[in-house]
Write a protein that binds this DNA or RNA. Structure first.
Length: 526
RNA sequence: GGCCCUAUCGUCUAGUGGUCUAGGACGUGGCCCUCUCAAGGCCAAAACCCGGGUUCAAAUCCCGGUAGGGUCACCA
């Protein structure tokens, strides 16, 4: 049997990391077993602007490298590919209605004419008795032919006829054995009553089951919030398999929810972009307008990580590791290793708290493993957006950037960081950070010292890091200034910032002329 | 409230009856290295929710509390 898993996002316009983690578990399970991973779009709510709402989700998966074997086409046009297309629920409604009618004909489903008022009364009564209200609809025990006839005449919601006095049992991959009495399960609605346009829509649980049978899904891996409606769905499977040949419901694995600060991750508790992040994005060319238009840029969406320059593999590593461990010690785990070892049965049962600090650490670890060349390639889109380089990057510029990448080394944690280190060297003049100038330049004696140091540099041969380093040390000793203080003033003079990579490397990369000119400018500011 | 799920350092986790004076990692604090900032090295503080059993022996099994959470729609 080929393993077939699925992930079914609703078209919301952005890809949530909680969803990514669930999708990832599905994807890993399929890949581990050489099976298929299918994507289905749950848009039973009628999709206005479908492409707009689906595209970011598809783009997110694409960026992460989570590929789907069947599902919507990448352009989000509404087309699908794969043997069971379409994969948009909105385009599959006929199947749901047909399936429900079959159930009704078989006496397994029925129209419910119980009024809302009546239901409310029963619910209140049950509540007063401190008992659960288990809804059973009006025409439960009416003959199928009669129900079919009535339904044609007067459509109503269609309910499943839940058998009484039975037990639904299933073995969840992560929860273990789950047993529920059917006496606690209300007759679930399969189909809505027709809307004003006469369209009869399927409800989630029903559409899901119909699709999953149709798609041949063998393993349903989804968030724990669905645990409670699994028995209901199992009942639907049972009914749909009525008189079928060799049916078997899929296996289930309910993975824990993603939390943050001990609570379900929710949009309103998410911090807004920090001043630091905003500065970073702006340095990369973002305008205030653009930032305002992107309320999806928060740490719960993949777009956020993409724009800041995270490595997809790092995000994936962090997300799998949250809720699953390879062994007692490993944190950084190559994807192949994860694929070779992942099992839903090893997923932890308790909810996992999302910790952006640890994610950042994982990201830094991945970045450290990249060569300077790879860092450059990954950072190019950000440099381009910042308008620090032009599109085909000239060879000379590229070589220069490579040197910056080498010098910046592990200081680059995000691809967008490259912009910070490169900007002062690429621009004609640095942006002088006012605070840096106040702290390091605008002090008594600094101007003279800078000029004196410039004089030393004027004749220095060769103008390379070791020679500059030697001159720097010698000069500091000669004038009796602490190396760290000398570093501070010179650094701010040539880059405008107090932090950066090695000063000798910075000066050498800039070249003697620019260094002298900038020191001159800075000395005038003192 | 009914039904269901969960419970090891602040956080992610290892642990499946003895090797646990509970291991690793992030974060935090300290020290070292040092031209700023990173990186790196060393050290430290920090947990088995509580109460009963079972057993020679329990973080591990059972029961009961407690605390969190999910779900109870003609939402998904």
């Amino acid at each position: 049997m080929t393993v077939r898993t699925r992930f079914a996002p609703s078209p919301t316009g952005y890809l949530h990391i909680g969803g990514v983690r669930t999708a990832l578990f599905n994807w890993l399970y399929a890949r581990r077993h050489g099976g298929q991973f299918v994507l289905r779009i749950d848009d039973t709510d009628a999709a206005r602007n479908r492409a707009e709402a689906v595209k970011p989700i598809l783009d997110g998966f694409d960026w992460l490298g989570i590929d789907w074997d069947e599902g919507p086409t990448k352009d989000a046009s509404g087309d699908s590919f794969g043997p069971h297309k379409p994969y948009y629920q909105g385009q599959r409604n006929d199947k749901y209605v047909a399936a429900a009618m079959k159930l009704m004909a078989a006496g397994l489903a029925y129209p419910d004419y119980t009024t809302q008022a009546e239901q409310d009364t029963r619910r209140d009564l049950a509540q007063r008795l401190k008992k659960a209200y288990v809804h059973r609809g009006s025409n439960r025990d009416v003959a199928p032919e009669e129900n079919l006839r009535l339904y044609k005449e007067k459509p109503a919601p269609v309910l499943l006829r839940v058998p009484e006095g039975e037990k639904v049992v299933f073995d969840d991959h992560v929860r273990g054995r789950v047993e529920v009495s059917t006496d606690t399960i209300r007759d679930p609605a399969l189909l809505r009553a027709p809307n004003a346009d006469g369209v009869t829509g399927a409800l989630y649980s029903f559409a899901t089951v119909v699709d999953e049978i149709d798609f041949g899904i063998t393993h349903v891996i989804r968030a724990e919030e669905h645990l409670a409606n699994t028995p209901v769905q199992l009942l639907i499977y049972q009914s749909l398999f009525y008189k079928a040949l060799d049916p078997k419901p899929p296996e289930f694995a309910h993975v824990p929810l993603l939390y943050r600060n001990g609570k379900k991750i929710s949009k309103r508790d998410l911090p807004p972009l920090s001043a630091d992040e905003i500065a970073k994005l702006k340095a990369c060319g973002w305008t205030d307008e653009e930032l305002k238009g992107r309320d999806d840029l928060n740490l719960a969406t993949v777009a956020y990580y993409r724009e800041l320059g995270y490595i997809p593999a790092a995000l994936i590593n962090y997300l799998v590791r949250l809720g699953w461990a390879l062994n007692a010690t490993d944190e950084i785990i190559p994807l192949e290793t994860v694929i070779a070892n992942f099992d839903t049965k090893d997923v932890t049962k308790a909810p996992g708290n999302f910790d952006e600090k640890k994610l950042f650490w994982v990201q830094a670890e991945y970045m450290k493993k990249l060569s300077a060349e790879e860092k450059l390639v990954g950072s190019l889109p950000y440099l381009l957006r910042a308008k620090l380089v032009v599109d085909p990057v000239p060879d000379a510029t590229r070589a220069f950037l490579l040197k910056i990448a080498e010098a910046a080394a592990d200081r680059i944690k995000l691809f967008s960081d490259f912009v910070f280190y490169a900007a002062p060297l690429l621009k004609d003049a640095p942006n002088y950070n006012p605070k840096a100038v106040a702290d390091k330049i605008a002090k008594a004696g600094v101007a003279d010292r800078l000029k004196a140091f410039a004089a030393e540099l004027k004749a220095l041969e060769p103008f390379d890091p070791p020679t500059i380093m030697a001159a720097f040390t010698a000069f500091a000793a000669k004038v009796g200034v602490k190396p760290r203080d000398l570093d501070g003033s010179v650094r701010v003079a040539v880059t405008g910032e107090t932090i950066g990579f090695g000063l000798p490397e910075t000066l050498a990369l800039l070249g003697r002329d620019k260094v002298l000119r900038r020191i001159d400018t800075a000395a005038a500011m003192a």
